[in-house]
């Protein structure tokens, strides 16, 4: 893993090509992470993949997260892996919530990492994050006519309460 100084070095190098791309760096529990501006996501991912000395060629996982009370609300996480040095780095693209009627948007990285295809569709399915340039951005796990983005924190868990006579009698 790149440690905290190593991360700052990476940040400095990214800043040369993409000024303002890296918003923050973090190092916790032995995991390095870069928080980036979603406008530069392809640039940063491409740099981490191709720049000499980096070589994070393997995208282990792409997933979204919802940090509801915090702002910006959404993040798309890219867990990159360098298989030669056995190092992981997480790139977090922070996305603001554009409000009720529109969806957060970010560029798709399917061109860089073909493995992201299903995982971007999953993030779209559950969080309503639109990946621009994705070849087939449709719902993947839920029915096609489903309404809502179920894994957002403000979406109810759903299901049915279990009712018992006793509770109904005394409290219902």
């Amino acid at each position: 893993m790149p440690d905290a100084p190593g991360l700052e070095l990476i940040r400095g190098e990214i800043e040369q090509d993409h000024p303002g791309a890296v918003l923050d760096t973090g190092f916790e529990h032995g995991c390095a992470s870069l928080a980036i501006d979603p406008a530069h996501v392809l640039g940063v991912l491409g740099w981490l993949r191709d720049a000499p000395g980096q070589g994070y060629r393997f995208l282990s996982s792409l997933h979204a997260a919802d940090y509801l009370p915090a702002e910006p609300r959404f993040a798309v996480h890219y867990e990159l892996l360098n298989r030669d040095r056995v190092e992981r780095i997480r790139v977090k693209a922070l996305l603001a919530d554009p409000g009720e009627d529109s969806l957060p948007e970010i560029d798709s990285c399917v061109e860089l990492f073909p493995t992201a295809e299903f995982q971007e569709r999953e993030a779209y399915d559950f969080f309503g994050i639109v990946f621009n340039g994705h070849p087939d951005l449709t719902r993947i796990l839920l029915p096609e006519d489903y309404v809502g983005w179920p894994q957002r924190r403000d979406f109810p868990v759903g299901g049915e309460p279990v009712t018992f006579t006793y509770n109904e009698r005394n409290y219902g």
Binding site: L142, P150, V157, G159, E160, V162
Partner: peptide, 12 residues
């Protein structure tokens, strides 16, 4: 009965 998965995706 839906079992432990009392959520949006499973028919109860």
């Amino acid at each position: 009965s839906g079992g432990m998965f009392s959520n949006y995706a499973v028919v109860q």
